[in-house]
Design a protein around this nucleic acid. Sequence first.
DNA 1: TTGACAGGCAGGTAAAGGCCTGCATATTTT
DNA 2: AAAATATGCAGGCCTTTACCTGCCTGTCAA
Lengths: 106, 106
Amino acid sequence: MDDDRVFRALADPNRRRLLDRLCDRNGQTLGQLCESMDMTRQSVTQHLGLLEQANLISTVRRGREKLHFINPVPLYEVYARWIRKFEEGRLGLLHDIKQELERNGN
Amino acid sequence: MDDDRVFRALADPNRRRLLDRLCDRNGQTLGQLCESMDMTRQSVTQHLGLLEQANLISTVRRGREKLHFINPVPLYEVYARWIRKFEEGRLGLLHDIKQELERNGN
DNA sequence: TTGACAGGCAGGTAAAGGCCTGCATATTTT
DNA sequence: AAAATATGCAGGCCTTTACCTGCCTGTCAA
């Protein structure tokens, strides 16, 4: 998995919106996705391209149409490899601060 | 929680690295964090500023030093509100594609 | 086969992002 | 008090990014 591409792809609200739309209904065409995007088709194409490079979506051509499918795997991996470790044992934020301050006699 | 700030903050590899360092050892000063960052102190400050705006870290001043603490809450919320919903019932990606193709007689 | 429809490709522009230098401030140490 | 240390602030530069317009290609249907 390419962490960086995934995080960068998720950085844009429009791209997250596209993922939301695909989550509502998987397998939509470019045209369908454009309807909910308030920008030109070409811009949507670019966003979808970045999502595909990040492996967050997969596509299948059907005649002159192109169907877009969300791929949950990289998202899960981001969680599993990256986010989860920050949760573990780190919920004691205030405890850490307090401890640090006390260690130095403030 | 401000989704957008969090995702944008996570988009940069240097900022993710900073979070990694804080995960290794919580409560480090700016100077300490700089040692592992291969860029000027001022740049690190900017990155830390974005992380703080995203509420991914909290800071405490101690004399002339500034201690940085990681805050796992927004990361958990990103997972809980956003990532998790893409996992649920979406692991059947290939199933979806196959179904869509069959529905149209390909 | 011609017109309509779905999508692809190639620049061009304006804004945002990331990094730097230079200087200022606040705290500690000598 | 003066020097050293830790951080803050401002501005400039260059690259990337997110849009757009304009035009081309492939597919389907009349």
